[in-house]
Design a protein around this nucleic acid. Structure first.
Lengths: 276, 276
DNA sequence: CCCTTTGGTTCATTATTTGAACCTTGATTG
DNA sequence: CAATCAAGGTTCAAATAATGAACCAAAGGG
């Protein structure tokens, strides 16, 4: 393990929730020696990745971060980076992926990677608005997104798209709570009969979901093994796209998806009608 | 001099002009040992400040830069503050404003406030690179920015974008000198035919311009009275955004824009072809 | 088929990083 | 008001990590 990496790791403690830290606060979190931490902080300051308030002596992220981000964004815009990650995962699962981002209270498609393996596949309209209450991505946003979404859901008349669409807000919110512990969501035909959606969150810098990465499959193709594959891919995509967006995955978010933890939302009952 | 700092200095070679570098290219610029540089690059990759393309082996700025910039922006929201000021001024002039910041020797768009009053308006690509020699903002940077810019200008082949683009460095520098006394710059169609740009500086803490605030108007709409309005708004925006950035306006900078002081740069002659 | 350049590796030598103890300052408290 | 505590920062011998010359393998170019 190199010295540089140890230095850089100190940057991890500077978050939106706690953007300013003193020497001792950092020392307490790291179990490193105070002198060591001090030298590292000083060096990061010297380069400009950190800066120290002359009055409070507190350290915070410095202006160089903006310069680097500018270069990064000019070279590789976030959506391009996200799309590349989606492409990789779409090759693995051989199914279409789509990324949707929250825009106010609306969930909007931002990037699509279509499967080139199946002639029967689920296609998306780019920049389409997704209904929060009838999609897996919507459930993800309710579980991990801003609180205002839940309020917004209650103040709406929820249209029904198929027999499986749930239009009762309280039922949807109950499912969102389960999603919070499982880390992923699914929606068997709620948006469109015959289309099974899976989704995982993309987090922003304040550890609140800013969007969702989802995989939609014709219901006829959903097998337990494909489900496992898709969930694995979604987990990787969720993590990598979160990083690509400059976001931070919350510590509480499950490291490993538990497939059985997630009880399906359903109008009819609790059977998993999508299993073979 | 610490190891960490030496590592971090490698980041300086990654610019918008040259965002992707191979190991040998970095080694040649640094006079460091190849093994040392390699280890440093690897370590920066491991943290995510850099990333390496698996195919080309080239290094570029990594996604962590975005995260850090997000935290920085959340702490010291210069861009948010600047945007607020721009919004206010955009309402007054009813025209689009954009803020560009100097990144090395490149001038890059950082924030845009689009007019919502006109259907015909000048739109910008966020984080676009502006040519120094063909924009009002570029002239501002030459007049009030770091000296290195002038050197950089001379060592370049200046592309022509329209009939009005000036590609002779000495002519551009003469105009920049006039801008120094007038305090503002304009560019009638040098970047794009039919687009008239006005610009004023944003100063940093050392009283050197770190960017420019500009207003771009369809040439057909430019009247003497609109020009006056725009200049007044730019002056206010220049002052306020400078403060928001923690900058300092030099004492020598004009307190009041003199509209007549500024002689237009032109290829053809000295007529103000943008006047009605 | 040789020559050059690329990215990357190895390992003894070297020099930097490390950490326990110490110092100084300022706020809090019995 | 002295005592205490925690803050940021410093010191220097000991430990550890960085360094660089030489080397390797692979990919073009003449």
């Amino acid at each position: 393990m190199g010295t540089t990496l140890n230095s850089l790791k100190l940057l991890d403690y500077f978050t939106i929730a706690k953007p300013e830290l003193g020497l001792s606060q950092v020392v307490r979190q790291t179990n490193m020696n105070k002198a060591t931490v001090l030298r590292h902080l000083k060096e990061l300051c010297e380069y400009g990745l950190l800066e120290q308030s002359p009055t409070t002596k507190l350290y915070s992220i410095g202006p160089v971060a903006l310069r680097l981000a500018g270069v990064r964004e000019a070279t590789k815009p976030v959506l391009v980076a996200a799309h590349q990650i989606m492409k990789e995962q779409a090759v693995i699962t051989r199914e279409s992926l789509h990324l949707s981002l929250l825009n106010g209270n609306e969930l909007q498609n931002a990037a699509v990677e279509e499967s080139r393996f199946h002639s029967v596949r689920v296609t998306f309209i780019p920049s389409e608005i997704l209904p929060i209450h009838a999609t897996a991505s919507g459930a993800i946003m309710l579980a991990f997104g801003p609180e205002t979404l839940k309020e917004h859901l209650k103040n709406q008349i929820l249209p029904s798209y198929s027999d499986s669409t749930i239009t009762d807000p309280s039922q949807i919110l109950r499912y969102a709570q389960k999603v919070q512990t499982s880390g992923w969501a699914e929606s068997p035909g709620a948006r469109e009969a015959g289309v099974h959606g899976f989704s995982a969150p993309v987090f922003g810098p304040d550890q609140i979901a800013i969007g969702a990465i989802a995989c939609a499959v014709p219901q006829s193709r959903v097998t337990p093994s494909l489900r496992t594959e898709i969930l694995q891919s979604l987990q990787i995509a969720s993590r990598d796209i979160t990083v690509a967006f400059g976001g931070l995955t919350p510590a509480a978010y499950p490291k490993q998806f538990n497939e059985t933890l997630n009880m399906l939302p359903s109008n009819a009952g609790s059977e998993m009608e999508t299993e073979i």
